[in-house]
Design a protein around this nucleic acid. Structure first.
Lengths: 203, 203
DNA sequence: TTCGATATGATATACAATATATCATAAGAT
DNA sequence: ATCTTATGATATATTGTATATCATATCGAA
């Protein structure tokens, strides 16, 4: 017997059936890190869709063909970046769960501000923004809202909260973060959480 | 004397300095209409970014090179579509200005429902969605909100109203329009207009 | 530390799509 | 009616994607 699969071929969330690569190998992690960083930098320099894979590999100082050993295309690489960001935000927000909305909002905007370049790129991609909103909506529906008998279906309420939050983040980034995270947290609470909560109950 | 510029070279909003084409010529209008229709159809069939210009020209039954006589690239063609949609919605909403929010919302969702294919494509493009939200925000800021002394800056309030509305439309389209326009108009009023108005005043 | 496994670099190449140029023809404008 | 111009057809330069191959370097495990 040949010892059952000692290696770890985990492609992110197991969705992509395509390129397999041992993510425990230092070389692999190094290459993927370099590629991700290059994509972010180049996207901020000249826009996501005009960045070529040759651009990325040259900036990352990595062989051109190496890219395709890890990802099928640019979008798959960018999705990897989103997964990392989502995991980080989740572990940031989980401990603070149940705190008051303004404090939660402050945490969110503090994180976004500290990773503004990556977030700018991610929120510039429609597929990733959709994915983000979908995941967030599911989470919000699970967490709160054991409500009923409103004009507005709970599914829409959850979607509205998440989509509005993402939009607020986008506004903040596009305007070069003119207010500090604490102020944005307060705005988040006053503009999104509080009114929507009231609507879900009474409306 | 040679008669000063009898022709009309209007490239949409005069922004693109690139391809000039007499938009009063029937042939031009016909070609552009065919190209736009082909792009919409193909995008719904297999996704915007994998649609090639050759696809478009073949579906439109138009010479390949002809495309570049009208647009630099796919995105410019799609922007043309957005301009038409925006103009139509504007003339739909202007007469009803000042009516109650639910009625306005019903008008909006009725229009979206009747043009769901085009709207699906447009709201799937991040640059166009941004443009739409920016224009809408300016309009809302001009219309209403002579307010002051709130935690939430009026600029953010306006942005929130528009972005939330677009998000609600996106939700509706993505879920295959499960409620009629009248219901969506009521939801729009209860979820977005009424709470945000209250926040802008009191919050 | 050694050894087998494997990720990488460098290179060549097939292929697809963009973008432009040219010229004859057909369609529209006046 | 005729002058203008948009189109079709075609060729071509250019760019970017995607895959294959082989020697080398790096890694993990014993």
């Amino acid at each position: 017997m040949k010892r059952a699969l000692p290696r770890v071929f985990t492609r992110n969330s197991g969705k992509s059936d395509g390129v397999l690569m041992n993510v425990e190998d230092r070389r692999v992690k190094r290459t993927q890190r370099l590629l991700a960083k290059a994509l972010i930098t180049l996207t901020l320099e000249k826009g996501y869709d005009v960045v070529t894979i040759r651009d990325i590999t040259e900036r990352a100082d990595v062989g051109y063909a190496t890219f395709f050993r890890h990802y099928h295309d640019k979008d798959e690489l960018l999705e990897d970046v989103l997964d990392v960001v989502l995991a980080e935000m989740l572990e940031l927000l989980l401990p603070a769960n149940g705190a008051d909305p303004a404090a939660m909002g402050t945490l969110i905007f503090r994180y976004v501000g500290e990773h503004s370049e990556v977030c700018r790129v991610l929120t510039g991609s429609m597929p990733l923004t959709r994915k983000l909103i979908t995941l967030g909506t599911q989470s919000v529906r699970g967490d709160t809202l054991p409500q009923a008998a409103s004009i507005v279906p709970p599914e829409i309420v959850a979607h509205h909260i998440v989509a509005s939050s993402v939009a607020l983040i986008q506004w903040w980034l596009e305007h070069d973060m003119p207010y500090p995270p604490e102020r944005m947290g307060a705005i988040y609470a006053a503009l999104i959480v509080q009114p929507t909560g009231a609507t879900a109950l009474s409306g």
